[in-house]
Design a protein around this nucleic acid. Sequence first.
DNA 1: GTTGAAACTCATATTGG
DNA 2: CCAATATGAGTTTCAAC
Lengths: 178, 178
Amino acid sequence: MSGHIDPIDLKIVETFGDNSRIRLSELAEIVGLSIPSVSERLDKLQKKGIIKKFTTLVDERQLGFDIQAFVRVRIDSSKHYKSFMEHVLREEEIMECYSVTGDGSHILKVMTHNTSSLEKFLSRIQSWPGVLSTNTSFVLSEIKRNSRISSEIVKQNLLDRQVLVVFDEKKSEKKSRK
Amino acid sequence: MSGHIDPIDLKIVETFGDNSRIRLSELAEIVGLSIPSVSERLDKLQKKGIIKKFTTLVDERQLGFDIQAFVRVRIDSSKHYKSFMEHVLREEEIMECYSVTGDGSHILKVMTHNTSSLEKFLSRIQSWPGVLSTNTSFVLSEIKRNSRISSEIVKQNLLDRQVLVVFDEKKSEKKSRK
DNA sequence: GTTGAAACTCATATTGG
DNA sequence: CCAATATGAGTTTCAAC
């Protein structure tokens, strides 16, 4: 079925996580297929939305974003959800936003220039309809930021739920086993 | 000075945030420079570490990572900091880790297959030396995940602190103004 | 899925301005 | 920084298998 993924696709995704500017020729060698084949797979991975975007990891601090923070936001009901979302998308300081369980209904990852710009940002948030409270944790240092998904661990995930197609060379030897 | 950044570099960074597989020829047209020039700038941005990595945004849920969570971890002292860091780097489920202020000394972003694999992961964390407690928030939905930094906002940041060099075409007309 | 060929585009380095 | 050039690679599409 077309919705399935095979280990080669995983390897492609993993390789692109490491370096999205890789040449197709190099990729073809890594995964052991011809260039036209990997080119076609890459297209399909994008069409399926598995690959969302080729992007670039940046050292934001060197660009003047000295303040990074996680802000937990509590909004009072789903009534304000849509307007909250619109505000979030509009604010350039908000790099990420997730709806979560636990105390606070949303987590924002925010980057700003200095504490005063953060202060302005926080008071702006608090003026949005439905925002009850915020709770800010400053990022002191970044220990890990993975852009890469290990294809091995994905393989285990997908094998478990049988959405992964694996060509097992030994399958034919014991085909009657169910 | 060589440590400085100009608006063209910012535009390059922004453009790569949108699409890291862009052709240099296209990039050259966007920023209004020749191909050799943008090529050289790109090299320098990488050497300076402003551009850290060309990577790919992936729909992790399609790869079987149905559970995403933020885990706040409290570790008891800096004595265990190094071993904690090593564990964090080794765990493939931990996609991001930040040292933060506030309740809990670290925030992890974790992705796993299902609740049972998360449970295993959490009990593993709690066995690490120095880990006092964890507090897990499940991600219900991703509202925003920006890989792109607006060059406009960066420009404001950098202008404020005078690390940005701007070629002001009108400067010569009023050079005596200080 | 492969291979191979063709047309095209691109990256990289170098030159002189 | 540009423009021009040269070369070797890379990409894409198409065919036929």
